[in-house]
Simulated scan of single mutants.
Amino acid sequence: MTTEVLAAGDHFVAPQLFVDALAEAAPPGADLAFRTLTSGWPTEPFGPVGGVHEASGTEEQIIEALGDAELALTQMAPFTEKVFKAAPRLRFVGVCRGGPVNVDLAAATAAGVRVSFAPGRNAAAAAEFAVGLILAALRRIPAADREMKQGHWRGDYYAYENSGIELDGATAGLVGYGAVGSIVARVLRAFGTRVLVHDPYLDPARAAADGVELVGLEDLLSRSSIVSLHARLTPETRNLINGDNLKLLPEGAVLVNSARGGLLDHAPLPALLRSGRLGALALDVYDVEPPPADWPLHSAPHVITTPHLGGATRQTAHRAAAITAGEAARFLRGEPLRHPANPEVGS
Rank of each mutant, 00 (worst) to 15 (best):
S182I: 03
L138D: 03
V187N: 06
G173M: 12
A143N: 03
V184M: 08
G173A: 12
G169C: 12
G173D: 14
A127Q: 02
G211I: 04
P204C: 11
A170C: 11
R154K: 15
L188I: 03
N162I: 06
H152Y: 04
M148K: 08
A136E: 06
A208G: 03
G169A: 06
W153H: 12
Q150E: 15
R154S: 14
N162C: 08
A127C: 04
D199Q: 04
G169M: 07
A144I: 11
A208C: 05
K149P: 01
D168M: 10
E128C: 08
K149A: 14
G178D: 02
A137L: 10
I134Q: 07
G211Y: 01
V175W: 00
S182M: 02
G211C: 06
D145Y: 03
N162S: 14
V184C: 10
D156N: 13
Y177L: 09
V131T: 06
V195A: 14
V184R: 05
S182Y: 00
S163C: 13
V212K: 09
Y160N: 05
G192I: 04
G173N: 10
L138M: 05
A172L: 04
A170P: 02
L135W: 05
P200E: 13
M148Y: 00
L188A: 07
E161A: 15
A185S: 13
G211H: 05
F129L: 11
